[in-house]
Amino acid sequence: MADATTVKEKAEQEVRMVDIYVTGKRYKVPEGLTIQTALEYCGYNIIRSCGCRAGFCGACSTIYNFTHDPTIRYGLACQTRVEQDMVITQIPFFPAAQALYNLEDLKPEEGENKLLTLYPDIIICFGCNNCTKTCPQDLEVMEFISDAIRGDIEKVYQKSFDCLMCGLCAARCPQGLQPYNIALAARRLRGAHLTTRSQHNEDRIKEIEKGKFDAAIEKLKKADEAELRRMYAAREIEPAL
């Protein structure tokens, strides 16, 4: 811990420091830290609101504004850099409601909009676009909700695919919708029911079940290392696509 102080003092001499506010208290932290690492720099051991630390899991949804500008802003703590006079709050976990379904039963009949069955409330979206403005992945959230209302699963899939499920869109929706859960149901429905199965994959599974490769694999398993090395070196390598 003594070292930490030294490091900190040294840092403060060499580095431009910015003021941030965590639960009302002011801290000086080096410019360039993310909100997450800045909290740790301030002595916080994070338990909730921290996952992959790389912008993939949506665990670290954060609300912030500035002492001179009360407008609420949203982001991921691991991906947002601290700025002068930032006031920071972490959202531990967003409890959005979710429709209950069996994936089996989601297979749509011709012309049927299953999403509307699961989430009938989506029609009350009045297009304020707050969800889109909030999304840390810059997704067109309001647009894919419109697509969901129209039953255009393919478009919901395309536009929502990069969703981290951080829940910020639901936090911001004045109508209480859960865009990220709606999009998840749409994508699962598409993956399971609306894409063509791979014939190659089905064929290969049957071949394996019938034991087509068993004898040859048994032989490989018994081969000594020299023999395996020879076979490995002799593999023909297919060019990358």
């Binding site: 429905l189 993956g191 399971a192 894409t195 014939q199 994959n201 089905e202 599974i205 990358a240």
Partner: peptide
Amino acid sequence: APDAIRWLESLGVNWDKEPDGSYHELS
């Protein structure tokens, strides 16, 4: 392996695919 891919798809995973349904596979 091939069955694991199919299992995930049956749960609703969206693999990158060619129009005929075969997987878009890379080295």
